[in-house]
């Protein structure tokens, strides 16, 4: 039966149901069990945002608090996965990725390849992404493009409670390392979520809004900003198709290209920095494979190539929003392909 859950509750329910289903599933991370400094189970906080709350009381030792040493516990989780468990490990903020590059990029991502397909690493690394929280430069980045870049990793970026639950269950049952990127700004977002366990396959983008004029390709929190812009544009008679990528690796290039073939106009919306990013990757895909369909240059709405600012005003300016998306869509629509030629002939 479907009821309304928050994104955070949907993630908690996915963890709970998979732990109940398979005793090989364990949780590892900073404060994922306790965190309040007492020995009472009821007091267990369940991670910095309370996403794993209640699981320690239910599953005891299968929920493990760790020292503040990402390289150690991410490495431990990867080792546990290689030797038969299915750990879900929390790398609190994705900004801390730097200290465990080797564990993730050289170990987890390479085992299957380097051992000739004989090793599997069914680990899920849950991590928070996203700006907008006055968290400053070291707690606000969206680094999914780095994970996407590495062969051997799968990268999941859900935007709704329904998707968060189904994609996390798929991630836990997957036999490869999966980086599961949770946007801090979505934790309280509500949506319908079935009580039953269900999966969503990787590499299937979701067309969250249909339209024939412009294709907006986006992910994570920006899906909602894009939808806001699309609603405002609809009032002016412009129908945008909004595609939520849901996973960046594997990527559903077919859904993207099919939509571009139909609209011929593209805006890619990505909260991350603009160089070597998901936005540039999608733009390159379209430029190479759907060039003939394009009626205007591909546009990107992204953050600038700077760290996430701490100043409130600057952070607000930094982050893409519905307003910026709307004006970019209008720019793409107004583009006249042969205007120069016509005026000079």
């Amino acid at each position: 039966m479907a009821r309304t859950l928050t994104y955070q509750q949907a993630i908690n329910e996915a963890l709970d149901q998979e732990m109940a289903r398979d005793d090989k599933v364990i949780l590892i991370g900073e404060d994922v069990a306790g965190g309040q400094g007492t020995d009472g189970e009821e007091d267990a906080w369940g991670g910095v945002m309370g996403v794993t709350k209640g699981l320690y009381a239910k599953y005891g030792d299968r929920v493990m608090d760790t020292p503040i040493s990402e390289s150690a516990f991410i490495g431990a989780a990867i080792g546990a996965a290689a030797s038969g468990l299915r750990p879900v490990v929390e790398l609190m903020f994705n900004d801390f990725l730097g200290v465990c590059f080797d564990q993730i990029f050289n170990q987890a991502a390479k085992f299957r390849y380097m051992f000739g397909g004989k090793a599997e690493t069914p680990v899920v690394i849950r991590t928070m992404i996203g700006s907008g929280f006055r968290g400053a430069a070291q707690h606000s980045q969206s680094l999914y493009s780095i994970f996407t870049h590495i062969p051997g990793l799968k990268c999941v970026v859900p935007s709704t409670p329904y998707d968060a639950k189904g994609l996390l269950i798929s991630a836990i049952r997957d036999n490869d390392p999966v980086i599961f990127c949770e946007h801090k700004g979505l934790y309280q977002l509500e949506g319908e979520v079935p009580e039953e366990s269900y999966t969503i396959p990787f590499g299937e983008a979701e067309i969250v809004r249909e339209g024939n004029d412009v294709t907006i390709i986006t992910l994570s929190e920006m899906v909602h900003e894009s939808l806001k812009a699309a609603e405002q544009l609809a009032a002016e008679g412009v129908e945008c198709e909004v595609i939520d990528l849901r996973t960046t690796s594997p990527l559903d290039d077919e859904t993207v290209l099919d939509s571009v073939e139909q609209t011929g106009r593209v805006v890619v919306v990505d909260e991350a920095n603009p160089r070597c990013s998901v936005a540039t990757d999608i733009s390159a895909l379209i430029a190479r494979q759907a060039f003939g369909a394009l009626k205007a240059p591909i546009e990107m709405v992204t953050a600038p190539h700077t760290p996430v600012p701490f100043s409130d005003n600057l952070e607000d300016l930094y982050k893409p929003n519905a307003e910026k998306i709307l004006s970019t869509v209008l720019k793409v629509l107004e583009y006249q392909k042969w205007s120069t030629t016509v005026s000079t002939s």
Binding site: G166, P194, S197, Y198, T199, I200, P201
Partner: peptide
């Protein structure tokens, strides 16, 4: 189509 897919994806 979506409703049937969602249904089919339930355990």
């Amino acid at each position: 189509v979506d409703d049937l897919l969602k249904f089919k994806r339930v355990d």
